[in-house]
């Protein structure tokens, strides 16, 4: 049974379009020219209980706007949202009791209070029974390494410490659905690892449903069997991460380091040039149509090669292609 369901979900922002300078400001004041931005455009998806879904897309794709509608903060312009059977905006308080949300750049904790006091307050607001609270605090202390943070006010915490504190505060009432909007933004590898472990543990141990946005594909690879990709407000892919990898896995990249300039080189058949540096040549090819050795031979005929390397595509480059409009190659969304 889906816990999150959106149907043709759309949010249009109306912004005043202002020309630069004082004259522009005055004109915008006297006769404002409005422009509609479809931040989220007819997006439909369903998420089942216990899933971890990665919600990805370039900057400005509409990820945060979607999450704000799912949490009930923003009202959709059209279309509908249901979370745990409720309309999150109309039943904001009831919805809020059962969900948790982390917005990477904000905190729900009190800036000036020691973390432990903030956390206790959050516990009381969500009416976590004291015994349960102590139990969870102990659990979280272990996975998130909270004990060194308990007496520090949020304002004195580093980015990574703040995010650990934030996650603890978001999950202390054991929400059934959690939205994480860039939970690993700006963190070092170790901190990311810790946070991923924590998210995974919450999902496995408590069956928490997680919707996660990120620009870090490591998060996606490690946590999300399923991804939803949006671009300019529209859903462009919804399905298993494995499918994307399979379809795009046909492509390989081969890079040559050369002693001469590579600009004049004639490209071998069935491949496209990626990077354009004078002494480096990166080619992408479909391994079902040609082979690395054929390409290498063709290049070496024309130019002296110092070194070369072959790369399997990682998720990052796959996603880059999708963002750049290469989705046609993964046609046939399994979900839609």
């Amino acid at each position: 049974m889906p816990v999150i369901r959106t149907e043709q979900l759309t949010k249009i922002f109306r912004v005043v379009r202002k020309e630069p300078g004082l004259r522009g400001s005055l004109k915008a004041l006297v006769r404002p020219r409005f422009e509609n931005i479809a931040a989220v455009n007819q997006v439909s998806f369903e998420i089942d209980a216990g899933e971890i879904v990665g919600y990805i897309g370039v900057n400005g794709a509409g990820k945060s706007t979607t999450i704000k509608m799912l949490t009930g903060i923003l009202v959709p312009t059209s279309g509908s949202v249901q979370v745990l059977g409720r309309d999150p905006h109309r039943q904001r308080v009831a919805n809020a009791r059962e969900i948790g949300a982390v917005f990477g750049q904000r905190t729900q904790l009190w800036w000036d209070l020691p973390f432990i006091e903030s956390l206790a307050l959050v516990g009381r607001i969500y009416e976590v029974p004291p015994a349960r609270y102590r139990q969870l605090l102990k659990d979280f202390e272990d996975t998130l390494g909270l004990s060194e943070l308990l007496h520090i006010p949020i304002r004195n915490m580093s980015l990574g410490q703040k995010m650990r504190a934030e996650l603890a505060a978001t999950l202390i009432h054991e929400p059934r659905v959690v939205y994480l909007d860039e939970p690993t933004i700006g963190l070092d590898l170790l901190a990311k690892e810790r946070i991923r472990d924590f998210i995974r543990e919450q999902n496995r141990g408590r069956g928490t449903t997680v919707l996660l946005t990120t620009h870090d594909l490591g998060d996606i690879e490690q946590l999300c069997p399923r991804v939803i990709i949006i671009d300019a407000g529209r859903l462009i892919y919804d399905g298993p991460i494995a499918t994307i990898k399979e379809r795009f896995g046909r492509h390989r990249e081969i890079t040559f380091e050369t002693s001469e300039a590579t600009t004049a080189i004639e490209l071998p058949r069935d491949c496209t040039r990626l990077a354009a540096e004078p002494h480096r040549l990166t080619l992408r090819f479909d391994r079902t149509r040609t082979t690395a050795s054929q390409i290498a031979a063709a290049v070496m005929e024309q130019i002296e090669v110092l070194d070369f390397s072959l790369a399997e595509p990682d998720l990052a480059s796959i996603v880059r292609q999708i963002y750049q409009g290469g989705l046609r190659e993964v046609e046939g969304n399994p979900r839609s």
Partner: peptide
């Protein structure tokens, strides 16, 4: 500052 988002998420009137 957008803090309203956080405040509206609290489960109280």
């Amino acid at each position: 500052e957008g803090r309203i988002a956080i405040e509206l998420l609290r489960p109280v009137d």
